[in-house]
Design a protein around this nucleic acid. Structure first.
Lengths: 201, 201
DNA sequence: ACGGTAACTGCACTAAATGCATATTTGCAA
DNA sequence: TTGCAAATATGCATTTAGTGCAGTTACCGT
């Protein structure tokens, strides 16, 4: 599985160096106060090379963008015979939240802070979430082809994610940067938001 | 109410000229193929002046950004004594769709097309929708202060808007041109997704 | 008519992003 | 090992979005 040619290893190392340098600089000087030239210099690459790793400055903050999709797809694949679509989505969201490997990482914490304050970053985050929803809806629709059409699946996923995101938005407004507290409030938010679905059954 | 000083009238006329010129050029050469200098020239203003009317290129496509919020606030204000929060939101969403004054306008049609194809425009649209949700949630929370907290209201609004947006995303992809059929499928999909909230009481 | 203020505009500047042309490094087969 | 093809790195020029500033013009209320 390692299938690790030298070229590939080197590339991953450089990629990591870029992310690390960027996070460092963002924390030190702020997002807008950091230029791509700064990041490139800190990562010891040419400015031009940056763009062969990330298409834009925002992308650096979303280096593993499809891990959430993967978690949801996994939850869908692992569904039981009695599971309703809503049950599956619920477990999928829990999986994402438990993927604390990402949640506690430095870049994730920084990202949350920047999403609150920097429009460009927030915009990119919303965009990725939107695309992820569509992808998850495809899988959900395929898994429940007999009772969900594409639009219905998309509406269901949108309702779930929308509820969680909406609650999260409010809770993050009134929360400090403490990752543990944030994680706790995240679970509160999801539970509260999804209660109408939990209550049934 | 007209309170129309010449200066103000002139400003509105220029604003309109910018939007018209931009729409014209976007349709002719595409969004990315049109520079702000082009728009300014067509609207007969200096390039610099453009930015005293719109903060960025995308903004031109969202010239009446808070009409949706207004419609929702209106629906909340016009609630009946038996209405549940979900009922009010449902009617608010229907109001928005019936606000065809905007829906049929040229800029709205162009905007829909560009949202599908141009990441920057989609990002801005999502951003505005997100902000609108928060605002609507505030009003809903105020109207039902006894049974909804801020997070709960935000979750509810997020679920409704998320369901509609998700379904719409799929329905717009399968470009059936019949607006009536699309409207019907939109209602089916969202009704199914939001059933847990609608069914109660 | 006049003085203050809001709007318009040109100029210079920063920074993001892309295209191109070139050099370097790596993978791989002979 | 050698040599060649492909991937990668990088410098340079260019376009464009967006901002700050300073000077001018147009409008408003008195």
């Amino acid at each position: 599985m390692a299938e690790t040619t030298l070229r590939e290893r080197k590339r991953q190392r450089t990629r990591r160096a870029i992310v690390d340098a960027a996070v460092e600089l963002f924390e030190e000087r702020g997002y807008e106060g950091t230029t791509i030239a700064d990041i490139a210099e800190a990562a010891e690459i040419g400015t031009r090379t940056f763009f062969s790793y990330f298409a834009s400055k925002e992308e650096v903050l979303f280096p593993e963008s499809d891990s959430r999709i993967a978690a949801a797809v996994e939850a869908i694949a692992a569904r039981g015979p009695d599971d309703r679509p809503a049950d599956v989505l619920l477990r999928a969201l829990r999986n994402v939240n438990r993927d604390s490997d990402e949640m506690v990482s430095r870049v994730a914490a920084l990202r949350l802070r920047l999403i609150r304050n920097v429009p460009a970053v927030r915009g990119r985050g919303l965009q990725l979430q939107f695309d992820a929803q569509r992808e998850i809806a495809r899988h959900l629709c395929a898994a429940y082809a007999d009772e969900l059409d594409e639009a219905g699946a998309a509406a269901l996923v949108g309702a779930f994610v929308g509820a969680v995101t909406g609650a999260l938005q409010v809770l993050l407004e009134t929360a400090g940067d403490d990752p543990a507290a944030m994680s706790r409030r995240l679970e509160e938010a999801t539970d509260a938001a999804l209660q109408p679905w939990l209550r049934r059954k």
